[in-house]
């Protein structure tokens, strides 16, 4: 028990420098990017050409002339107080905007994770149970095909099939749960196929180990052996992969969100990038970075729970 707590503590401590590194990168991104935010902000109205004095005033107001370290300190202090700054374009607080859009992205990601996990488990177990049968061979071919189709192609195909031909699902918006079915499948299918293949091969790898022989000699059937003995040892690579995919989805799926017109974090970032809204981009990078680190931390803890050697072996 103590060793388990120590393991969790160690993992938590490690995230601190990583998170700090992310803030540094997010901030540096704003500095490296070309273009002057003050000029951009001042020329937000296309009909008006700002004077040099106006731009200089704006520059001072935004603190763009201060030393870099002071800018970073000011920015980091704001971050710790929950202030990610205001958008350079529309002056709205970035954090409020992110939080307003988060529920849509979160719903999409969680649904997609559920699809990835369910399909991955079911598919991986089935294919390994029926190893080398027609189901297994045909299934693997289909998986490779689905894996290689880009998400937006899948999205357009589904819109054609379900919205235009069958007319069962809406094409765009985020009004109800039915709006999320197609986007969720569009982002989940590729990763789900990878997880199925990953799980299948790690289950079959585990099946060759000695402890499986002991389980067989107890009189357990193949399905029981996979569920009770093999699965927990075979899950680690799939958990890590699914966590990576989920972390990526939390950052918003820019293309899918824009194809289905879902107001989410991805489409927010897309707008911010095209308008060079540095505060918004910084906020976005910071948010997705933090989300990713937390998801990976969670995945590490799940792997440690599955595999006692990780948490007890030190």
């Amino acid at each position: 028990m103590n060793q388990t707590l120590r393991y969790i503590g160690k993992k938590l401590l490690w995230t601190i420098p990583i998170l700090l590194g992310i803030t540094l990168l997010a901030f540096a991104l704003g500095l490296i990017a070309r273009g002057d935010p003050a000029v951009n902000r001042a020329s937000a109205d296309p009909d008006y050409i700002p004077t040099e004095e106006e731009i200089q005033a704006l520059r001072e107001e935004l603190g763009l002339d201060d030393p870099v370290l002071i800018q970073y300190g000011r920015w980091l202090g704001g971050v710790l107080r929950g202030d990610l700054g205001r958008s350079l374009i529309d002056d709205k607080p970035v954090l409020d905007e992110l939080l307003r859009l988060l529920p849509n992205t979160l719903l999409l990601s969680v649904l997609a994770l559920a699809v990835i996990a369910a399909a991955g488990l079911l598919g991986g177990i089935c294919l390994s149970l029926f190893r080398d049968s027609f189901l297994d061979v045909a299934g693997r071919v289909v998986l490779v095909f689905l894996m290689s189709v880009p998400g937006f192609c899948m999205a357009y195909f589904m819109i054609w099939l379900f919205a235009q031909k069958l007319r069962v699902l809406p094409t765009s918006g985020a009004d109800g749960p039915e709006n999320f079915i197609m986007p969720c499948l569009a982002v989940a299918i590729g990763s789900a196929c990878v997880v199925i293949r990953l799980l299948r091969s790690s289950i079959l790898g585990e099946m060759g180990k000695n402890y499986v022989l002991t389980a067989q000699a107890k009189g357990l059937r193949r399905g029981q052996i996979i569920l009770r003995h093999v699965l927990r040892n075979a899950l680690t690579p799939s958990v890590t992969y699914a966590a990576n995919a989920f972390g990526g989805l939390l950052g918003g799926s820019m293309i899918t969100e824009s194809v289905f017109s879902i107001p989410g974090i991805g489409s927010y970032a897309l707008t911010a990038i095209s308008k060079r809204d540095y505060t918004a981009i910084q906020g976005y990078v910071l948010f997705t970075g933090f989300a990713f680190v937390l998801v990976c931390l969670l995945a590490d803890l799940i792997c440690a729970w599955l595999n006692p050697k990780i948490r007890l072996g030190g």
Binding site: N210, L213, A217, R222
Partner: peptide, 26 residues
């Protein structure tokens, strides 16, 4: 296979070789 499962363990049991790897590590 199903009938054999009833024989394994209950009628004929096995002590496999390599004890360290013959137990499930997890």
């Amino acid at each position: 296979q199903r009938e054999l499962c009833a024989v394994r363990g209950r009628e004929i049991a096995l002590v496999a070789q390599n004890p360290a790897t013959s137990l499930n590590p997890g």
